[in-house]
Design a protein around this nucleic acid. Structure first.
Length: 315
DNA sequence: ATGATTTGACCAGG
DNA sequence: CCTGGTCAAATCAT
């Protein structure tokens, strides 16, 4: 279906759009199969909702990729728009006038970027931090007004190489210091999607340990705690909050656009993290070597350590 | 040497 | 003007 090699002349955004649509086609077929079995829908409505969410996410991604602001072949990236080649709106006008003459690259002012419009967001409350299957990289942390704890900002590690827009925010809750609020913003357009999806699909889809709501700003409580992974340490003195499996407690969506993220489908996590990871690693045709090497080398699933208080490591 | 994290600076939006 | 989100140089870890 998908060409093994793309014509070099084909813009990268068209390739990405094609990949998204291909993904959507698979998902739609999956949905159709589900709809053929009404009894299964009743017993496993979460899976159906999840597939719908992923399809909507596909549309979201495709529209983003093909948006007018992204017709130059560069994946839509409101922040990258000014970072590569690092020219702000003001500077762009200058470039069109004077800088074009001498072609001297204009060094952008620090912190110069376009704030993204909040797209699809999803909030999870958890007592432990999880590996959601994606490689995250911390890019900032801030003290938040009226909050006792700092908020930590993570972006997808493939932001620049693949233009992935996904970010997440991790913050301890004030009411319960051991509880974390994790907000996922945007959807992954990187290849790591597949790895996360594998992780998701490796989990028991019949378990309803956490429910998904597509309504605006709804929070639903899960029925029971799933078995949890302990966080995986990155280094002896710190833990990467993006890595490690957890027991989910609550999940909520804000459906500005499309609520979707592979982790949504995770209902129960096996007690052995390496089993999932190894199963993921075995799917060579599903996960690109680059993604794997990035994920593994970056975070090193080397050993597991307990982490009940993130402040011990990070904040 | 390379990649990840920290942290102060900067900017957009309310 | 204030706050939150992001950038990027400096620093740290491997």
């Amino acid at each position: 279906m998908e060409p093994s090699t793309w014509p070099e002349s084909l813009p990268s955004n068209r390739i990405k759009a094609f990949q998204e649509l291909t993904k959507g086609q698979v998902l739609t077929n999956k949905l159709r199969e589900m709809l053929d079995c009404p009894e299964k829908i009743e017993s496993d409505i979460d899976s159906v909702n999840d597939v719908v969410a992923q399809i909507l996410g596909m549309f979201d991604n495709t529209l983003s990729i093909l948006s007018p602001s992204n017709l130059n072949g560069i994946p839509h990236n409101s922040t990258n728009d000014v970072r590569t080649p690092n020219i702000s709106d003001d500077q762009k006008s200058e470039v069109s006038d004077e800088s074009v003459k001498n072609m001297i690259p204009v060094k952008p002012k620090r912190g110069c970027y376009k704030r993204r419009k909040i797209g699809s967001t999803r909030t999870i409350f958890t007592y432990t931090l999880t590996d959601d299957g994606y490689a995250w990289r911390k890019y900032g942390q801030k003290v938040i007004l009226n909050s006792q704890h700092q908020r930590n900002y993570f972006r997808c590690s493939h932001k620049f190489e693949q233009g992935c827009q996904a970010t997440k925010q991790v913050q301890k809750t004030d009411d319960e210091p051991s509880k974390y609020k994790i907000t996922y913003i945007g959807v992954h357009t990187c290849n790591n999607f597949q790895k996360a999806q594998i992780i998701e699909e490796a989990l028991d889809p019949m378990d309803n340990s956490f429910l998904i709501s597509f309504e605006k700003n709804t929070t639903v409580k899960n029925n029971k705690m799933g078995t949890c992974f302990q966080p995986i340490k990155h280094t002896p003195k710190e833990v990467n909050p993006s890595l490690s499996y957890m027991k989910h407690e609550q999940v909520s969506f804000s459906d500005h656009d499309t609520p979707w993220d592979p982790i949504v489908g995770v209902s129960q996590v096996p007690s052995d993290p390496m089993s999932i990871i190894s199963s993921v690693l075995n799917c060579e045709d599903m996960v690109s070597p680059g993604v794997l090497s990035s994920t593994c080398s970056t975070h090193g699933y080397g050993y597991i350590a307990k982490c009940h208080d993130l402040d011990d490591f990070l904040f």
